[in-house]
C-alpha cells in the first residue's frame, strides 16, 4: 500500500532516476510514487554475475560483446507512493488500494507532478515511508520544482515550509534536505 516495485524487462543502464515521480494509470486510480531505489542483477540468484571483459574495456563494450548478459539481468525499482488522482482530483495521500500487478509504470507529466505534489503536501506520505531518505526527498523536491517552470521558487518555498512543519522535531534533517535542494 505504501510502496510498490516495478521492473524493466531486462537490464537498463538508464532507469528512472532517484526521486523521479512515476505514475501507474491503470486500476481505479492513477497512482503516483517517487523512486526510492534501483537495483540491477540476475533474475536467478543461483547464477550470479561474474566479471567479464578485459582490463580497460568499458561496460558498454562488454555488454556489446556479450549480448546474452542483458537477457539474464533485470533492473528493478522501488517506488514510494505519494498520492493519487481520483476522478480528476489530485490527492497527495495514499490511494485506498495498491496499483494492479503487471500494470505499466510511466513517468509522470510535469502537470501531474505539480498537481500531485500540491505545494509540498505529497511529502506527508513520502516521509512516512522509511525508504524515503534525505537524498530521495531532496531529489523529489528538485524534480517537482523543475517541473513547475516559472513557479519553481514559490513551490520550493511552500514545499519547504511543509517540510519544516513535518520535521519540526528534526531541524538538522530539515537543514540537510534543504541544503541538498539548493546547494
Amino acid at each position: 500500500m505504501r510502496a510498490f516495485e516495478c521492473a524493466y524487462a531486462r537490464y537498463t543502464s538508464e532507469p528512472f532516476a532517484l526521486g523521479q515521480m512515476l505514475v501507474v494509470r491503470e486500476g481505479r486510480y492513477d497512482t503516483f510514487g517517487v523512486v526510492t531505489g534501483s537495483e540491477s542483477g540476475p533474475d536467478d540468484p543461483s547464477r550470479p554475475l561474474v566479471p567479464r571483459g578485459d582490463p580497460g574495456q568499458s561496460a558498454a563494450a562488454v555488454m556489446a560483446s556479450n549480448p546474452e548478459i542483458e537477457l539474464l539481468l533485470r533492473t528493478t525499482l522501488t517506488v514510494a507512493i505519494c498520492g493519487h488522482i481520483d476522478r480528476e482530483v489530485a490527492r497527495p495521500v495514499l490511494p485506498p488500494m495498491p496499483p494492479p500487478l503487471l500494470a505499466e509504470v510511466q513517468a509522470a507529466t510535469n502537470e501531474e507532478k505539480v498537481r500531485v505534489a500540491d505545494e509540498g503536501r505529497f511529502l506527508v506520505p513520502l516521509l512516512a515511508n522509511p525508504a524515503a531518505d534525505d537524498a530521495v526527498v531532496a531529489a523529489a523536491l528538485r524534480e517537482v520544482a523543475h517541473a513547475a517552470g516559472p513557479g519553481e521558487r514559490p513551490f520550493l518555498v511552500a514545499a519547504g515550509k511543509e517540510l519544516a512543519r513535518l520535521l519540526k522535531a528534526e531541524p538538522s534533517r530539515l537543514t540537510s534536505i534543504l541544503r541538498a535542494v539548493e546547494p
Partner: peptide
C-alpha cells in the same frame, strides 16, 4: 542557502 531562511520564516 537562502531557501533555508525563507522556509524557516513563519514555520
Amino acid at each position: 542557502p537562502a531557501l533555508l531562511r525563507e522556509v524557516l520564516q513563519d514555520t
